[in-house]
Amino acid sequence: MSKVKIFIQNLIQEVRHKITWPPYHKLQNSALLVLVASFVFALLIGLMDWSLKKAFVWFYNAF
């Protein structure tokens, strides 16, 4: 049990003192970038899904 306690103490110390946290404005920029990229990827996947659906419907109705 003492190993777990030491591990948690070391973990807390590392999070408080050894990790370099980015400034708030960089976090905002990164979050905005992720949001825009997710939206673009969702549009691309939606467009591919729609076009494949139309292609398969055309193909199945042709035969």
Rank of each mutant, 00 (worst) to 15 (best):
M1E: 14
M1I: 02
S2C: 02
V4S: 08
K5M: 00
K5H: 14
I6Y: 07
F7N: 08
F7K: 09
F7A: 14
F7W: 08
I8R: 12
I8K: 06
I8M: 11
N10L: 13
L11S: 01
L11W: 11
L11Q: 05
I12Q: 06
I12C: 05
E14V: 06
V15M: 14
R16F: 13
R16P: 00
H17K: 15
H17P: 00
K18P: 04
I19R: 10
I19D: 03
W21K: 09
W21M: 05
P22C: 10
P22D: 13
P22F: 01
P23C: 04
H25A: 00
H25G: 05
H25V: 13
L27V: 15
Q28W: 01
Q28H: 02
Q28V: 12
N29A: 11
S30M: 08
S30W: 12
S30D: 14
A31Y: 12
L32Q: 00
L32T: 04
L33N: 06
L33F: 12
L33I: 02
V34N: 15
V34M: 03
L35K: 04
L35P: 06
L35Q: 00
V36A: 15
V36T: 02
V36M: 11
A37K: 11
S38Y: 00
F39C: 02
V40P: 01
V40H: 04
V40R: 03
V40A: 03
F41T: 02
F41H: 04
F41M: 09
F41E: 07
A42H: 05
L43C: 12
L43D: 07
L44P: 06
L44Q: 09
I45D: 02
G46H: 00
G46A: 11
L47C: 05
L47M: 09
M48V: 09
M48R: 11
M48Q: 07
D49I: 01
W50F: 15
W50V: 09
W50E: 11
W50I: 06
S51R: 02
L52M: 03
L52P: 04
K53M: 03
K53H: 15
K53E: 10
K53N: 10
K54Y: 02
K54G: 03
K54L: 13
K54H: 10
F56K: 11
F56N: 11
V57Y: 14
V57A: 15
W58Q: 03
W58C: 00
W58Y: 03
W58R: 12
F59T: 10
F59Y: 15
Y60E: 07
N61I: 06
N61A: 07
A62N: 11
A62C: 09
